[in-house]
Design a protein around this nucleic acid. Sequence first.
DNA 1: GCAAAAGTGTTCAATTTACACCCATGG
DNA 2: CCATGGGTGTAAATTGAACACTTTTGC
Lengths: 236, 236
Amino acid sequence: MKHYTTQPRFLLAIDCIIFGFDGAELKLLVIQRGFEPCRGQWSLVGGFVQQGETSEEAARRALKNLTGLDGLYMEQLHTFSQPDRDQEDRTVSVAYFALVDIQQYRQQLSEDYHPAWFPINHEPSLIFDHNEMVELAKEKLRYKAALHPLLFELLPEKFTLPQLQNLYECVYNTSFDKGNFSRKILSTQMLTKLNIKDKLSSKKGAFYYRVNEKKYHANFNAFTNFVGGKFKSLKV
Amino acid sequence: MKHYTTQPRFLLAIDCIIFGFDGAELKLLVIQRGFEPCRGQWSLVGGFVQQGETSEEAARRALKNLTGLDGLYMEQLHTFSQPDRDQEDRTVSVAYFALVDIQQYRQQLSEDYHPAWFPINHEPSLIFDHNEMVELAKEKLRYKAALHPLLFELLPEKFTLPQLQNLYECVYNTSFDKGNFSRKILSTQMLTKLNIKDKLSSKKGAFYYRVNEKKYHANFNAFTNFVGGKFKSLKV
DNA sequence: GCAAAAGTGTTCAATTTACACCCATGG
DNA sequence: CCATGGGTGTAAATTGAACACTTTTGC
């Protein structure tokens, strides 16, 4: 093993795969790249890790810059290190995926970034290996959401069961029985029923619920099967 | 966003968390570090990523060097980037976890590396953030093995159901009903029964099985609940 | 009153769990 | 011939899937 000083050095980047849900479709947030190489092309939100910060911190910084939001759900996805992934220089990128409530998202700095939401499954061609990152993030989202309640992170504070079911149906591109779905979700005791109804999508109106933070955090890492029998046939 | 040339540069390392099973205990392979800083202390197997190779390739190179084995089960775990994690220089490390059949492992280059197997739960104090890496790898192993058949990778080509059950019981530190365990495993059709018995641990002898590679690979990524009802109470 | 969406109830099937029982054999 | 661990059978309990039914209300 050679000594440290003889080892090659790398640029270290982060890239964020940001998912949102507009009530009808699952979407991906991308920007128009503002500098060379590939200026003007669609790209994930990213940046370089600085001395004195972790890659997590760099990713949160990038997210905050673009969305104006703190405390988003975010987790490390994978590190991409193909020598030729960035034609300009040897850059290794740590990819993170993040979930945002699209209603809370306020477009900031749009002059600099030109952000745009694309429907998942119709995202544009992205620079470097960013499409590969998005594919992996979609897999991970489907995987993790089948067992853990992270899709709540995509919804506003108050939401109805039909809205939640619609989100699951979008993510898994299938349909669920409403009776069985509602019983399954409510049996986790992660939701608190409010006395207000959303009357926008039906005459009867659907009750709003909000996440019971205590139960949610306490049970986030437990295994809960959120997708019924489709669980067994899911491949990832 | 600054231009590339103004960005800081990092050393890029890989570290491998290598698990093995000796029939009675789950074990971790560590080495005595051969160079400064921390020469002589216990460490994960690692190395620096070189120009022109991916971190995956660097990890396979390190595994091959130490164990003499190709084609081990290996997957990327997490990237560690605390600025002070290596006191000598700013080094970011991509951690991989690997599973080896301990019987196939031949101690090579022992003069250089001084490798040793430690029982999981009694591993020694390791350099840098390596204990943290091991903790995360143990969690990931328990998580993934609950749903996918990766523990087969820890066993020799031929093994008995009681041996397999013992392995699961070690990983989850619990016990399973032998009848239900055997039915569950065999129902996956991932095992082929051989006409030879292992007579070492009983008078009656237990039939050997081997992995049906076709079924195994085809269904590796499907969700299969390998831990019965303990699944629901498993937290990770 | 009726269409449309929310929400509840009920049945049948599949899976899981617990535990009893039989089997093979070395000493 | 019996103790020991391997292996099979089975009934009860739980969970899941399907679908019928009731509720509410704007038009």
